[in-house]
Amino acid sequence: MNEPGIWLPQASSEAAATDTILIALLVVSSAIVLLVAGLITVFAIRYRKGSPASREPLPSIFARDVEFGWTFATLGLFIAIFAWAASQNITLAHPPAARMEIHVLAKRWMWKVEHAGGQGEIDELHVPAGELVELIMQSEDVIHSFYVPAFRVKQDVVPGHTERLRFTPEKPGTYHLFCAEYCGTDHSRMIGRVVVQSPEEFAAWLTRQPQEDDLAKSGRQLFVRFGCAGCHEGQASVRAPRLSGLFGAPVQLADGRTVTADDAYVRDSILQPKRDIVAGYDPVMPSFAGVVSDGEIAGLTAYIRALRAPADGGVY
């Protein structure tokens, strides 16, 4: 990942196009700087006080024509550069319909990535070379900015907005991912890497990842093995709350509080079942602390999450 020397690698198709404009600007700017600096130097020497060079007044026509000349020359040059640079934007604005969509959630101070197949990554993004990728990004708190210098792309992720960023990675390798919009204390730690792989490697990588689907499946097995199903499902003899549609929903508790059934709530209910008793039920569930591992809790939680929509309740 040791990219920098003097110029970044061009790891996406956008990089080459941007660099072309950048280098053209560099050439034009250098020429203008050299012209101005050169003229100042030449004049400063030739017309130093007391030098023998001629100080005749300029012909009266000179001033105005020269003035108009360089005004319109500059105007024409700048408009031409603008039009050229703008043409790239207009091309990029009409992308082909086929693209790989990847969801990105930005929050202080990490990037959470979720692939279409449910594979998740943190502060890392794997993408295949040669395919148009579209990131669909949201922020949980403040403005962040997704920046991959080697791709020459950047997109602010503004809370309340859904932002899209498209690029076509080309060169396999590992590149920096930076947060470019100042987001607070650990702004400079909100960095990660983007791994561009050949399509075959990428496909292999995808299958190696634990998917949320898999997690939920194993969670179902645990749900049966630990005996949860005995009370929390259909024809149980003990009355326990049903879990379909529970995840993410508000839960009315016996002591009058209302909590949201999130990861923390599920975890607490497994480990300290007496803490948050659901209104209308008896405190009969035993604690599973020391019985289930953290990984198993994650599996159980994934299963309960998968039961979110009642219609999907019986899938597993």
Partner: peptide, 17 residues
């Protein structure tokens, strides 16, 4: 002149911030 780099959209997207 470096302001021109920032005024042209594709280059600014790269070097902004």
């Amino acid at each position: 002149l470096t302001g021109l780099f920032l005024a042209s959209v594709p280059v600014d997207i790269h070097v902004h911030d």
